[in-house]
C-alpha cells in the first residue's frame, strides 16, 4: 500500500520534471504523427529531424551556459555568431581541405574574442545583457559585411561536407559531433570545478562570491564560450549547407536557442537545468515544426500553434515564484 503510493508520487514528481515532460511530448508527437501520416516516425525521418535539431542544439549549448550563469544572462547575438562562423570558415578555408583546421581555429579565436566583448560589457560596464548582446549582433553584421564586401563567400570544402553529412552506420557525422558535445557538456557540468562554480553563481551570486567564485571573470568567459560555440556551429552549418546562401542564415538561431533552453527545463533565473534537457528541447521544437508541416497546416497557423504550445509548455514549468508577501 505504502509502496504503491510511493511509486505514484515518483510518477507524479516525474511529470513535474521538465525533461520528462519534454521527452513525453516528443513521443506523443511521434506517435500521433505516425498515426496521421504513416512513416513519420521512421528512422530516416527522425534522423533528418535530428540533423536539423543538432545545429539548434549546439547553439543552445552556449545559450544554456549563459542562462545558467544567472544575472539575467542572455545572448541575443548567437545567431549572428553562427553566420560569422560560417563566413570566416568559408573565407579562410577557400574550399581547400588542407586549410580546414586553420579555418576552424580562425573561427574559434574570432568568435571567442567577440564574445568576450559581450562579457566585458555585461560584467564590467553593467550593460544589461539583452541590450549588450543585441547591439553586438548589429556590430557583427557590420563586420560580416566588411568581410564579404558584397561578394559571395567560398562554400564548404569537400572534407567538411563529408564530415557533416557523411553517414556512418546510417547516421550522419553531425549527430556524432552533437553527441560528443553533449557528453562533453554533461561532463563539464557534473565533474568539473567550472560546472560547480557556474551552477553556484547562477543560483546565488552573492553566496558564490563568498564561496570563492570570481563571479565577474567567470561570467565574462561564458559570453566568450557562447560566441565561440555559436561560431563553430556556423562553421559546421557551412558544411551542411555547402554554401553561404545569404548573410542572415544564422538569424533564426537566436530566438530558437533561447526557447530550446527554456523548453528543456532550464530556468531563466539561472542555476537550474541540464544539457540533456536542452537537447531534448531542441529536438522537440524541430519535431513540432515537422509535425505541423506533415499534417499540412499552413505556415501562419503553424506559427500560431507553435507559439501557443510554447506558452503552454512554459506555463507548465517555467513560472516565476509567487511574489506577494
Amino acid at each position: 500500500m505504502k509502496n504503491s503510493s510511493l511509486t505514484l508520487r515518483k510518477v507524479r514528481l516525474g511529470f513535474r520534471n521538465p525533461t520528462v515532460i519534454a521527452l513525453f511530448l516528443c513521443f506523443l508527437i511521434l506517435l500521433i504523427g505516425n498515426l496521421v501520416s504513416p512513416g513519420f516516425a521512421s528512422f530516416g525521418l527522425i534522423v533528418n529531424i535530428l540533423v536539423v535539431a543538432s545545429f539548434v542544439g549546439l547553439v543552445s549549448g552556449g545559450q544554456f551556459l549563459i542562462i545558467l550563469g544567472g544575472g539575467n544572462g542572455l545572448d541575443l547575438s548567437v545567431g549572428r555568431f553562427v553566420t560569422l562562423g560560417a563566413i570566416i570558415g568559408g573565407v579562410v578555408s577557400q574550399k581547400q581541405d588542407s586549410k580546414l583546421i586553420l579555418a576552424l581555429l580562425a573561427v574559434m579565436v574570432a568568435t571567442f574574442l567577440l564574445g568576450l566583448v559581450n562579457g566585458v560589457g555585461v560584467t564590467h560596464f553593467r550593460i544589461p545583457p539583452l541590450v549588450m548582446t543585441m547591439s553586438m549582433s548589429i556590430v557583427i553584421i557590420a563586420i560580416i559585411r566588411f568581410i564579404t564586401g558584397g561578394i559571395g563567400v567560398p562554400g564548404a570544402s569537400k572534407l567538411l561536407q563529408k564530415i557533416i553529412t557523411g553517414k556512418v552506420l546510417g547516421i550522419p557525422g553531425i549527430l556524432y559531433i552533437w553527441i560528443l558535445f553533449a557528453v562533453f557538456l554533461h561532463y563539464l557540468m557534473n565533474n568539473t570545478t567550472f560546472g560547480v562554480k557556474l551552477m553556484a553563481m547562477g543560483t546565488n551570486d552573492y553566496a558564490a562570491r563568498l564561496a570563492g567564485v570570481k563571479v565577474k571573470r567567470l561570467r565574462t568567459l561564458l559570453y566568450g564560450f557562447s560566441g565561440m560555440i555559436a561560431g563553430i556551429t556556423g562553421f559546421l552549418y557551412l558544411g551542411y549547407l555547402s554554401s553561404v546562401y545569404n548573410i542572415s542564415l544564422g538569424d533564426k538561431f537566436t530566438l530558437i536557442s533561447v526557447i530550446a533552453v527554456v523548453v528543456g527545463g532550464t530556468s531563466l533565473g539561472g542555476g537550474k537545468g541540464t544539457y540533456i534537457g536542452v537537447a531534448i528541447g531542441a529536438f522537440l521544437l524541430q519535431l513540432m515544426e515537422s509535425f505541423l508541416v506533415t499534417i499540412r497546416i499552413d505556415q501562419s497557423m503553424r506559427q500560431v500553434l507553435f507559439g501557443t504550445i510554447l506558452l503552454v509548455i512554459i506555463f507548465m514549468y517555467g513560472r516565476e515564484q509567487k511574489m506577494q508577501n
Binding site: 531563466l268 533565473g269 512554459i314 517555467g318
Partner: peptide, 15 residues
C-alpha cells in the same frame, strides 16, 4: 500566470 516577461512575450511574438 507568472510567466517570465522575456520568454512569454517571445511566445506571443510568434503567435
Amino acid at each position: 500566470l507568472r510567466l517570465p516577461p522575456l520568454i512569454s512575450t517571445y511566445g506571443t511574438q510568434i503567435v
